Computed example of a mutant assay.
Amino acid sequence: MSDTVPDLRMTPIAQLMQGGRWRVESMRSYTRHQLLWFTRGQGRLTVAGITRGFGVHNAAFIPAGTMHAFEITAAVYGTALFFADDPALALPDAPHHLRIRESAAQVELTALLETLQRELDGDRPARARALRQYLGLLSVWLERQLLVNDDQLAPTDAARRLAAGYAALVERDFHTPLSVSDYAAALGVTPTHLTRVCHQTCGRTASELLAERKIGEARRLLADTKLPVKDIAVQLGYRSPAYFTRVFQARTGRAPLTFRKSG
């Protein structure tokens, strides 16, 4: 068996806001799967076009490449686990949000996460194998909880399925000049119907979801790279740097370069 340590990272949920609240509140996706375990506080999650409130002892699994954002306060505590895809773990393909009511299941997940953190922090013999085994137990825990807990993100009706389909297309193509009308045509619905459904499932219009995803990526590129503003505008499908600057300032209250300097 390989001695390579599994590719994973754990962090307190509050630390996800380092560098600005936009880090969690902007629509975004990660290249890694993530599991969020909330142990205190409450807020709202928007995942794949569906918004739901979360509270204490809620778990959210968000697959890599899934558009999402969440609203939290300083009173929210918990753990975020990011890990690479591993077929052996048999993780879900879709996002899930579970309210864990049984105390035994709450204790079990907390203990697994604490044990994973200890293994990550230490350098004990057979560390890589231990981490793989604990991740396997984590995937079993998630599979069992999906059988007994209500899933707040499951696309159980036509509206949710349409919103999830739109969110997936936006995540795939937000860097292009495609408009809401283009996405609606690809989904076989009218722009008006798509907007109505998005507002129903997440409280945002279709155009707002698209704009939030573009601006979220713009913020990331401005904060984390040295790409010129004109290149960011082109990369995100805006028709000109001037138009990008106007849109960015209208949505954030700051010009792109001002935002970059403030970070």
Rank of each mutant, 00 (worst) to 15 (best):
Y183G: 13
T201M: 09
E208Y: 07
E102Y: 07
P125V: 15
L36D: 09
T79V: 13
R254I: 08
T201S: 13
E171G: 10
M17H: 09
P228F: 05
D151P: 02
Y238N: 02
C202H: 08
F70A: 00
D86S: 11
L209Y: 05
F259R: 11
S179E: 05
L147Q: 15
L109M: 12
I215T: 14
T195D: 15
P12D: 12
A48K: 11
A130N: 12
R251T: 07
H57C: 05
L146T: 08
R196M: 10
P87C: 10
S262G: 05
A186C: 09
M17N: 12
A186F: 06
R254Y: 12
A94H: 04
P256S: 04
D121G: 08
L209G: 04
R101E: 10
Q15L: 14
Y243D: 08
D121M: 03
V140H: 12
A84D: 15
Q117G: 08
P191N: 03
A206S: 14
T51C: 12
Q249A: 14
T252W: 03
G188D: 05
L153K: 10
G253F: 10
V76D: 09
K261Y: 07
F54E: 07
T245H: 11
S181K: 07
F61D: 04
A74R: 14
I232F: 05
R161W: 00
A167R: 09
G49S: 05
R172Q: 13
D93Q: 07
F82T: 09
A104V: 15
E108D: 14
T156M: 05
V5D: 13
Q15Y: 06
R32T: 12
H97V: 08
T205D: 06
P63C: 03
R28S: 04
G49H: 05
T225N: 04
G65I: 02
R251M: 09
Y243N: 04
V234L: 14
L236G: 04
E102I: 13
C202P: 01
P95M: 00
G55F: 11
L221T: 02
P228D: 07
A211T: 10
G237W: 03
T110V: 00
F82D: 05
R246K: 11
Q152T: 10
R260T: 10
T79G: 02
M1N: 06
L221E: 12
A211K: 06
M10C: 01
A69W: 03
A242P: 00
R196Y: 06
P95T: 02
L98G: 05
T192A: 14
L221N: 09
V24Q: 01
V56I: 15
V76R: 09
V247H: 06
R127H: 09
L137Q: 09
T66M: 13
H97C: 13
L169N: 03
F259H: 10
D3W: 06
T225A: 08
R127C: 15
R239G: 11
T190Y: 04
Y77G: 15
Y183L: 00
L221I: 07
Y77M: 15
S207C: 09
P63K: 01
T51E: 10
T205I: 01
T73G: 15
L120A: 05
N149W: 02
V189I: 00
T11Q: 13
R129N: 14
A206P: 14
L178P: 01
